[in-house]
């Protein structure tokens, strides 16, 4: 099993890139839950060292960058991608054979509308996956994908890129690398859906913005809701009929992994 990096290595690597923090600050962040907890590992010399997942380094850099922008630690915590605690080991992708056909032509990365947001192009993840799930680098790619299917349409080898990324997002990654970009949004969305059987986009966006993003230009969204009777206030959405049966069925559906 991979243990990751010891604390000293992380701090040294950070220093090489011009970030400087003390050991104490690092441990404080761990305590706050901004960084993952380390794993104890006995050394040959008899001492004990704590090892942290490799993605800790990236996460720490993000924290420091955000801090420079003047955000408080509390705000930073809200913004950071959160880990999904899952005891399930990574599964194998059912269409791995098709991934082997990848020619590394780079079309998927080139055509991706959101590639600027992505750490790594999909083909890099495909290549890493073929090396073995453990060699997958931590990257936000699966979570940034908007699912527009342009990559699949253009791929000369007809590789199911979107399916692969969907798989990584759901179950393909080892527990330490499984995280969720916008947990708060999800939580709000699902609770509204369970409440009514229908989603309430205005309510959800509103709640989300108040809690996470704060005020900003996106507020233009709420300015008007036109109609033949003139502008109208947002009313709560309609509901489906037998909600308790619906919720029961939804719970039932959730049971299948």
């Amino acid at each position: 099993m991979e243990f990751g990096l010891p604390l000293e290595d992380i701090l040294q690597k950070l220093a090489e890139e011009g970030y400087r923090i003390s050991r104490r600050t690092f441990l404080y962040y761990v305590q706050l839950g901004l960084l993952p907890k380390g794993k104890r590992k006995g050394q040959k010399s008899g001492g004990v060292k704590f090892y942290y997942p490799t993605w800790t380094l990236e996460r720490l850099k993000t924290i420091l960058r955000l801090k420079k922008q003047g955000l408080t630690l509390k705000e930073i915590k809200k913004r950071l991608p959160r880990e999904i605690p899952s005891p399930l080991p990574p599964k194998t992708f059912p269409q791995t054979a098709r991934l082997k056909d990848c020619n590394v032509c780079g079309i998927c990365g080139a055509i991706c509308p959101v590639h600027e947001e992505m750490d790594l192009s999909p083909w890099r993840l495909i290549q890493a996956w073929l090396e073995g799930p453990d060699s997958l680098p931590s990257a936000n790619t699966p979570w940034v994908c908007v699912g527009c299917y342009l990559c699949e349409e253009r791929c000369p080898r007809e590789i199911p890129v979107v399916d692969f990324l969907r798989f990584l997002r759901r179950e393909g990654l080892p527990p330490g690398k499984r995280w969720r970009k916008h947990p708060e949004w999800s939580r709000i969305f699902w609770s509204l859906l369970e409440e009514r059987g229908r989603s309430f986009d205005f309510g959800a966006v509103h709640a989300y913005h108040i809690r996470i993003i704060g005020s900003g230009e996106n507020q233009r969204l709420f300015l008007r809701l036109p109609g033949p009777e003139g502008e109208k206030e947002v009313s709560a959405p309609s509901k489906i009929k037998n909600l308790s049966a619906f919720r029961r069925a939804l719970e039932h559906a959730r049971e299948w992994p």
Partner: peptide, 14 residues
Amino acid sequence: NCCGAREIEEAPEG
């Protein structure tokens, strides 16, 4: 009922 929009991508397939 709601189709689940984009959020179903992160929920289990079922």
